[in-house]
Every structure is written in C-alpha cells, then in structure tokens.
C-alpha cells in the first residue's frame, strides 16, 4: 500500500479511506442522490396512481373500494412520505434550474440546497399537521 503524503493525521493502517473517489460528497452530491431516489419513487407511484384512477371507468363501487385502500393509517403515512418526496423533488428541481440558468447559481449551489431544505420544512409542517389529522382522527 502506498504511504500517505499528507501526514497531518497519522491513520492506522487498513483504516484509510480509498483515495480519489469520483464523488466528493457534501450538498452537491447528496442533493443529486436524493433527487434521483425521490424521482424514481414518484415515477413508480405515478404508474400505480394512473391505474387505480382508471378504475373509475369500471364502476363507482370498484373505484371506492380501490381508493379506500389509501385511507388507512399505514397508507396515510406512506402518502406523507410520498408528498415529502414530491416537495423535495420540486424544490430541488428549481434549484437545478437556477444552477443552470442563473449566473450566480453554481457559486451559491450549497446555499440553494439549504434553502431547499428550509422551504421543504416550511411546506411540510402545515401539510403534515393537516394530513395526519385527517388520517388519524376520522
């Protein structure tokens, strides 16, 4: 194994991190990872949601039975998670547009990420209060 050249902190042999990985971590990478995961999650839900809505063409009874599945507490929590994913994907998407089109976008991309997180909390708190009240006190 090659010896470390930057000897600020001596690291025990065998516990060193692999050098020169492609991704640098921090806000830029993690927002990308979260954007990707939330996007794929929303995509699969969209597929299910179009098909469950399509049962309106069968009969009112069938649709009400299918959509009734969304009204139990477990699904209610799932909906909260899904809306959380949608809101993050939407806000981070606006951040990506700003990084692409606004001259200061790349310079301020970290601050923009924390702006996304803050705005996500601001939107999710009232949503969760209203939605979880609907789910658990009906």
């Amino acid at each position: 194994m090659a010896t470390s050249t930057s000897a600020t902190k001596p690291v025990k042999p065998g516990r060193q991190k692999p050098a020169g990985t492609l991704y640098r971590g921090r806000e830029g990478m993690w927002s990308w990872v979260m954007h990707r995961i939330s996007g794929v999650l929303i995509f699969f839900f969209l597929f299910v949601h179009v098909l469950d809505t399509a049962t309106v063409r069968i009969s009112p009874e069938v649709y009400d039975a299918v959509i009734g599945q969304y009204k139990n507490p477990v699904m209610g929590l799932g909906e909260a998670g899904l809306v959380g994913a949608v809101v993050f994907h939407a806000l981070n998407g606006i951040r990506i547009i700003l990084v692409d089109f606004w001259s200061g976008g790349t310079k301020h991309q970290r601050k923009l990420f924390w702006g996304v997180v803050a705005l996500w909390v601001v939107l999710m708190v009232p949503f969760l209060v209203r939605h979880l009240t609907n789910v658990f006190t009906h």
Binding site: V56, P60, D64, I67, K71, H131, N134, H138
Partner: peptide, 8 residues
C-alpha cells in the same frame, strides 16, 4: 376532509 373526501 382531505384523503377521506376522495371517492367516485
């Protein structure tokens, strides 16, 4: 009623 209002 939020989610509970959604029916046919």
């Amino acid at each position: 009623d939020g989610i509970h209002q959604v029916d046919w």
